Simulated scan of single mutants.
Amino acid sequence: MTLLSHGRYCDEIIGQADALCALLDGAGPGALGRRVPTCPDWDAEQLVRHVGEVLCWVRHIVEERAREGVSVRDVPGAQGPEDPRELTAWLARSARLVAGALREAGPDVPVWSWAWEATTGFWARRMCHEVVIHRADAVFSQRAGDAPPSAYGYRLDPAVAADTLDEWLRIVEFAVAAEGAPRPPAGVGGTLHLHATDVADAEWLIEIGGQDFRWRRAHARADTAVRAPLTALLLASVRRLPVQGPEFEVIGDRPLLDFWLDTARFG
């Protein structure tokens, strides 16, 4: 596993936020009021406010070199503008400000985080992927019928998609270490292989059902295999797409896959 460069993460924060905003700005009146089916408690306005709030919060952590947790309620400007018509411009500006703060700091400055690494580099990667996934949520809020996310401009560079899935598995690993592995039903357990069909060497092997959670990049036989294009594989892993339809091929034990999708989560 090779991380992207710090500068690339900063570039992606801006680029992914711009794409999210362009999608909503181009969707016409009512776009912000549409429900987000992948985040069912939110409409698109709440989604934008959440993403902007998190970006403002991380910018504050980085600029203040915070070594303890900070409540987002104490971060000036994190609530965004009252007028919904100003929200996408605020989100785009927030992305540029946090990317600028991260660039100025570099990747190695110690700052507070909730995770396994407490550096500005951690936050650059985390914010890149935060916007990547919520951009997909924005697509799902606007799409009609069964149109694929790619029809709405949701296309990820393979390096970004693979790194987003790597980080997601690392987050699940962190959660399991803190909370314990979920107990599978009787007879469910084994290995799961995720195999991207459109990108070379984008394969993951996950061990499910033990006391710990283990995963690695690997080409290997497993009890269950899921084959799909990389972006679809990522969206399925973070429960944005169901594993069904012509993009997906499932080989082997479906209950093992269903258990993984039901329990791989954080928070």
Rank of each mutant, 00 (worst) to 15 (best):
A118Y: 09
V51A: 06
R34A: 03
A31N: 03
G28Y: 02
L234C: 05
V70A: 02
H6W: 00
P81R: 15
I206Q: 13
D25N: 12
L205Y: 10
A27Y: 01
P40E: 10
D166S: 15
Q244P: 04
D41M: 14
V132A: 02
A66Y: 09
A232P: 03
E247S: 08
V132M: 07
A162K: 04
G28A: 04
V54D: 05
E117C: 02
R65E: 10
D166R: 01
P84Y: 11
T224D: 00
S237T: 10
F248G: 05
Y9M: 02
E86R: 14
V188E: 06
W42K: 10
G190D: 11
E64P: 09
W260H: 01
R240K: 03
C39V: 06
R183K: 12
G26P: 04
L24K: 08
H134C: 15
A27H: 08
A138F: 02
R240C: 07
A95S: 00
E167Q: 11
G52N: 05
A177Q: 15
C21A: 15
L261T: 08
R183T: 12
W57H: 09
R170Y: 10
A162E: 05
P148E: 14
A232L: 12
A95I: 06
G153Y: 07
A99M: 11
G245K: 04
G145S: 06
E64R: 05
P255D: 08
H6Y: 11
H193W: 05
A264H: 00
G52Y: 00
W57K: 10
Q244G: 10
W57P: 06
A178G: 06
W112K: 15
E249S: 15
T119Q: 01
T263I: 10
E64K: 07
H134E: 09
F122N: 01
V75A: 08
T120L: 04
A228G: 03
R65Y: 04
V250C: 10
Q142C: 08
V139D: 08
Q79G: 13
A138M: 02
P158H: 08
R221M: 14
V199R: 01
T164A: 13
A220S: 04
F213M: 06
L257N: 04
F122P: 03
D157F: 02
G28T: 04
D108P: 01
R73N: 09
D74P: 00
H60R: 01
H193I: 05
P182N: 08
P107K: 13
C56L: 07
Q142P: 01
R126S: 07
G190P: 03
V75N: 01
G252F: 11
P255C: 13
S150G: 11
E117H: 10
R183E: 12
F248S: 05
S150R: 05
P148R: 08
P107R: 05
T2Y: 06
P246L: 00
P110L: 12
D258G: 02
E63M: 03
A162Y: 03
V58W: 02
G30K: 04
V172F: 07
M127A: 10
A31C: 14
A124S: 03
C10E: 05
P29M: 15
P107F: 00
P84H: 03
R227C: 06
R135T: 13
R183W: 06
H219L: 14
P84S: 11
